[in-house]
């Protein structure tokens, strides 16, 4: 275990020093993230304009959802995309060979090799919005709600990881899949709103088919004390299922790996 932690820190040091080369990017990305959050807040204000309610959520409660959305958007950019999007490249160019030959777990290696610290501000900003919005609500969350919230955030991360990982792993069959994760992101953008704002069947779609609700809405429910008991079990179930599926899918993919010849 300690070996894996040491590896992670070495990987991160190396990718951090590569990224400091691009200081203009750093500033631009920071501005972009702030603008994006401002844009989403503006969107919330516009939506709340007349009803003063968004599918039963107040402005600050909806802002918690937005915070969780921004947090995961950041985490995807920080830790998932920089690793998993390279699977396709590795398969195409044949560098996957070297990865598979290393004496550590290959799924670990392809998952935690790089980190894109450019996106760290997104993560911090997401956390900031969550804290700010939670503090605005009339009843502060108790310790139980808080720990439930953290547990559900971990489940949410497992769900995102599982989906993203499996999408990226399709590279073993379809070589040109560098943008296949847009399939997920296209739907994920709906997660910046509480799932209850969507009309009937769209809500069902985002809850059970593409479990966006369990990534943003459900953890936010826990943090604002609106969680229903059932949601917790379903979230845990989804998380476990997707982690297991990702493991199984990786092994399945490795079996059909044909090393690039030229």
């Amino acid at each position: 275990m300690t070996r894996y932690w040491r590896l992670i820190s070495i990987f991160m040091g190396a990718s951090l020093s590569a990224q400091l080369e691009y200081r203009v990017n750093f500033v631009i990305n920071l501005v972009e993230t702030i603008l994006r959050v401002l844009g989403s807040l503006l969107g919330l204000i516009i939506l709340l304009g007349e009803n003063k309610s968004l599918g039963g959520w107040s402005f600050h409660e909806a802002a918690v959802v937005l915070g969780v959305f921004t947090l995961f958007d950041g985490l995807i950019g920080l830790a998932l995309a920089p690793n998993l999007n390279r699977i396709a490249e590795g398969v195409r160019t044949g560098t996957m060979d070297f990865t598979l030959l290393k004496p550590i777990d290959s799924q670990f290696l392809v998952s935690f090799r790089n980190i894109n610290l450019l996106r760290l501000p997104d993560v911090l900003l997401g956390l900031g919005i969550i804290v700010w919005a939670v503090l605005q609500s009339p009843i502060l969350p108790n310790l139980g709600n808080l720990s439930l919230g953290i547990l559900l955030l971990l489940c949410a991360y497992s769900i995102v990881y599982g989906i993203w990982f499996m999408l990226s792993t399709t590279a073993f069959w379809f070589v040109r899949v560098e943008n296949i994760t847009e399939l997920f992101m296209g739907f994920y953008r709906a997660g910046q709103f509480p799932v209850s704002v969507f009309p009937g069947w769209v809500r069902t779609l985002f809850t059970f088919v593409i479990p966006i609700a369990f990534i943003t809405t459900i953890p936010a429910q826990a943090l604002t004390g609106k969680l229903e008991q059932n949601s917790l079990w379903i979230a845990l179930g989804f998380a476990a299922l997707l982690l297991f599926l990702s493991r199984w899918f990786w092994r399945f993919a490795l079996r059909s790996y044909t090393s690039a010849s030229s």
């Binding site: 939506l47 009803n51 968004l54 847009e182 992101m185 296209g186 739907f187 953008r189 009309p199 769209v202």
Partner: peptide, 16 residues
């Protein structure tokens, strides 16, 4: 799919 925002907003506003 990277331009889904209007479609998502379509659903949100109909919900509203």
């Amino acid at each position: 799919l990277s331009g889904t925002i209007p479609l998502i907003m379509l659903a949100v506003w109909i919900g509203q």
